[in-house]
């Protein structure tokens, strides 16, 4: 999978949880998931579980700690997918 493909899938998964539509319209790798997109922190777990299902990967607790921006999620998924 290319970085762009993963990015598009990540944004698609995030979309139902996003509260800031304006930020979503301009989403980029550097967009912060909690602060910019206003995804509820409690829902971040659901988002990560959706990443696991979508990409058939397993994400450890410590890996979740590193996911702040959309790009962090993309990088993490690309690493796991290999």
């Amino acid at each position: 999978m290319t970085e762009q493909e993963v990015f598009q899938q990540v944004v698609k998964i995030l979309t139902p949880y996003v509260k800031n539509q304006e930020a979503l319209d301009q989403v980029a790798m550097g967009t912060n998931i909690l602060e910019d997109l206003k995804v509820n922190s409690a829902r971040l777990v659901d988002v990560v579980l959706a990443f696991e299902d979508e990409f058939d990967i397993e994400i450890a607790d410590e890996d979740v700690d590193k996911v702040n921006a959309v790009g962090d999620a993309v990088t993490l998924i690309l690493q796991k997918v290999g």
Partner: peptide, 10 residues
């Protein structure tokens, strides 16, 4: 800080 940076919460 709930909803803070993940590394800070961790």
């Amino acid at each position: 800080r709930r909803g803070g940076a993940r590394e800070e919460v961790a």
